[in-house]
């Protein structure tokens, strides 16, 4: 246990911070802990959680993807046209949405690898293109999303089972231990476990970490650098599209909002840092970034139960973010040889 903490200090600190924030939130909550509150909280988490996951992969190899918010918006706009009709049509719509995001991520990867541009500036430009496409698809906010789908995916497992008649409408005994788990949480962590954890163990996945630690060494060891880079940006596009898909289902609308897209991108960077992933690359992971997103959200939950002037909310959010990232700086004052601070 102590060894694990030593190896994952950033993750452990983030976990402790989140638990402290979230448990005291429930202790202070006037109605106490309930499934309804949990469902509501997790609903607010999903979109930023997915975008934070998306941001993590390029950050691990030492780049940044400034287009994740835009890809999410593009995916949400595509989804707002396609998620209605027969179950088959809806399933096709979901796959098409994810495909659009993944393809855009692939385009990012190709530009970064074969165009040999800096990721931060290449994705800044492709982000503008993604927003432009989203505006073409949805000039005005709106959309048509299947009501059952919206209800089933934004509530607890019980409601999901009831809506689609699984396990005797959710009354089956084998389903009993799970009925109160919010479905959004299952989607978020399920996607992380099913996609990220297996991917991390492949050669391509390990190469992403290797590039972030020492690119020259990774190249000299004959690791597939180009493939890993393209895969990283493609995966970022995929996760961002997951976020967009969920956002469209949750709100039943697509909205090509430039400001919102930018806010999601910037918050995703904040979530990645809070989760303990180094912006220089090489250490960290996708699960940690979900934790970072949870911390960001947990802070905003407090505004509802504490009687804080709404006008002070942005200020408090900013101060918490600034304090959290500055806390990492304690390391700076313990360094014996100052040369270690510089690269």
């Amino acid at each position: 246990m102590t060894r694990w903490i030593g190896q994952n200090r950033g993750f452990a600190a983030a976990l402790a911070l989140f638990l402290a924030l979230y448990l005291s939130y429930h202790l202070m909550h006037p109605r106490g802990f309930s499934t309804a509150v949990l469902v509501q909280n997790s609903n607010e988490l999903v979109a930023i959680g997915f975008v934070a996951m998306a941001q993590t992969v390029p950050v691990l190899l030492g780049g940044l993807d400034l287009s994740v918010g835009a890809i999410m918006t593009l995916a949400a706009c595509v989804a707002s046209w396609l998620l209605d009709g027969t179950p088959l049509q809806i399933a096709f719509g979901m796959i098409a949405t994810l495909a659009v995001g993944t393809a855009f991520g692939l385009l990012n990867g190709l530009i970064v690898v074969y165009g040999r541009l800096q990721p931060i500036i290449a994705t800044l430009a492709t982000g503008a293109i993604a927003i432009g496409l989203a505006l073409l698809i949805r000039p005005n906010p709106g959309g048509n999303v299947d009501g059952d789908l919206n209800w089933a995916l934004t509530n607890s497992v019980f409601d999901f089972a009831e809506t689609y008649g699984i396990g005797q409408d959710g009354e089956a005994t084998w389903l009993a231990p799970f009925v109160n788990i919010p479905l959004p949480l299952i989607l978020l962590f399920g996607m992380a476990c099913l996609v990220w954890l297996p991917f991390k163990r492949t050669v391509t996945g390990r190469t992403i970490y290797a590039i972030g630690s020492a690119e020259g060494a990774a190249f000299a060891s004959g690791l597939p650098i180009n493939r890993a880079r393209i895969a990283a940006f493609t995966l970022a596009g995929f996760f961002a599209a997951c976020g967009g898909l969920y956002l469209a289902i949750q709100t039943s609308t697509g909205n090509a909002d430039v400001v919102q897209a930018g806010a999601y991108t910037l918050n995703s960077i904040a979530a990645v840092v809070l989760g303990g992933t180094a912006l220089l690359g090489g250490t960290g992971g996708v699960i940690a970034s979900i934790l970072g997103a949870m911390i960001l959200r947990a802070v905003s939950f407090y505004f509802r139960i504490l009687d804080i002037d709404p006008l002070l909310q942005p200020l408090i959010e900013g101060i918490v973010l600034l304090a959290a990232v500055s806390a990492v700086a304690f390391r700076t004052f313990r360094v014996k040889n100052q040369l270690e601070l510089f690269r």
């Binding site: 530009i111 165009g115 430009a125 982000g127 503008a128």
Partner: peptide
């Protein structure tokens, strides 16, 4: 927006 992005790239 699309032209803007394309020009930069």
């Amino acid at each position: 927006q699309i032209i803007y992005g394309t020009v930069i790239i």
